[in-house]
């Protein structure tokens, strides 16, 4: 017993307590639910069995039912469009801004830091603001675009089925852009200056320097940023209820929001669990990318 207490003060007992407390907590509130989720996706869950752990086994019928839902393919397609569109927008614009802010001028770091306010704002508020900016008849974006002569008549961003998913994507790009830029800036700053000087002496112009030095040197940063972008995009939820609620007619619905709707608006928890298991598989894929791209740091 004394040995036990000594180990808590002086030995690995201390480490085990510290790491153990957090791990037990995470296991209980993240690990278990994950397993429970998979279990539920194979069960029949309704109002009567909601309070029981052992419910009638449903085999893969939940999965079959989900795939047979008329909106399934629409949601799948939207999820892909949302992920690819958001990531591409965040990354390209973020990279451009990062390169711009890597130039030396007064206040560069401070102004760049201001961009990050988008990232600390509650998602629902961001959704509310963009909902107003993107409003059809009175939205400011439409009137700016009209003023610039880019469009002739108003675009009904939120209610036009061909634009609704893009309304969420635009808001999401705004939300994640700054974080992408910040991480890419860190990667850019880590490239030794003298590499550029050497390349300049070798006769490379700015464009060639970007392709032959910046991009290759940023490989691991880009990998991490892209996978973090993928993860962040898959996690995005708050913009949907604030902007379109997945509508009209599911044209802007994605897997995460759909799963929530199934569980909490239709009270079909089995289907909700099934969709979220499917989504989890997607996330697993993203996290493998992420871990691979950060592995050298993990081993450090």
């Amino acid at each position: 017993m004394a040995k036990f207490f000594n180990s808590l003060r002086d030995g690995v007992g201390f480490d085990l307590i510290l790491v153990g407390a957090a791990m037990v907590f995470l296991l209980a509130l993240a690990g278990l639910p994950l397993v429970y989720n998979v279990l539920m996706s194979f069960q029949q869950v309704d109002m009567f069995t909601l309070g029981q752990l052992i419910r009638p086994f449903a085999g893969i019928s939940n999965y079959v039912a989900v795939v047979q839902q008329p909106e399934f393919w629409m949601v799948t397609r939207n999820t892909l469009v949302f992920v690819v569109g958001s990531m591409a927008g965040q990354f390209v614009l973020g990279f451009a801004l990062a390169v711009f802010f890597a130039q030396k001028f007064p206040g560069a770091a401070t102004i760049r830091g201001l961009f990050l306010v988008s990232w600390v704002m509650p998602g629902l508020v961001v959704g509310a603001i963009w909902s107003w900016i993107l409003a059809g008849d009175f939205g400011v974006l439409n009137s700016i675009l009209r003023g610039l002569g880019i469009i002739q008549s108003n675009i009904f961003w939120k209610s036009d089925p061909s634009f609704s998913i893009w309304a969420v994507i635009i808001a999401n790009i705004w939300l994640g852009l700054a974080f992408n830029m910040l991480l890419l800036s860190v990667g850019l700053a880590a490239i030794p200056r003298d590499l550029y000087e050497a390349a300049e002496l070798d006769g490379a112009n700015a464009w060639q320097r970007f392709w032959t030095i910046t991009l290759p040197m940023m490989r691991s940063t880009i990998g991490a940023v892209l996978s973090l972008g993928l993860i962040g995009t898959l996690q995005q939820f708050d913009l949907f209820p604030a902007l379109t609620e997945g509508g009209p007619a599911n044209t802007s619905n994605v897997a995460g929001y759909w799963s929530w709707q199934l569980s909490f608006q239709l009270y079909d928890f089995a289907k909700g669990a099934t969709v979220s298991v499917m989504m989890f598989v997607l996330v697993l894929f993203a996290s493998i990318l992420y871990v691979r791209s950060t592995r050298h740091e993990v081993r450090g």
């Binding site: 639910p33 429970y36 539920m40 993860i231 939820f237 995460g256 799963s259 929530w260």
Partner: peptide, 13 residues
């Protein structure tokens, strides 16, 4: 990387 939307159903139940 786990989205909240994946966790909410099992957590709620």
């Amino acid at each position: 990387v786990l989205p909240a939307s994946v966790m909410i159903t099992p957590l709620f139940v």
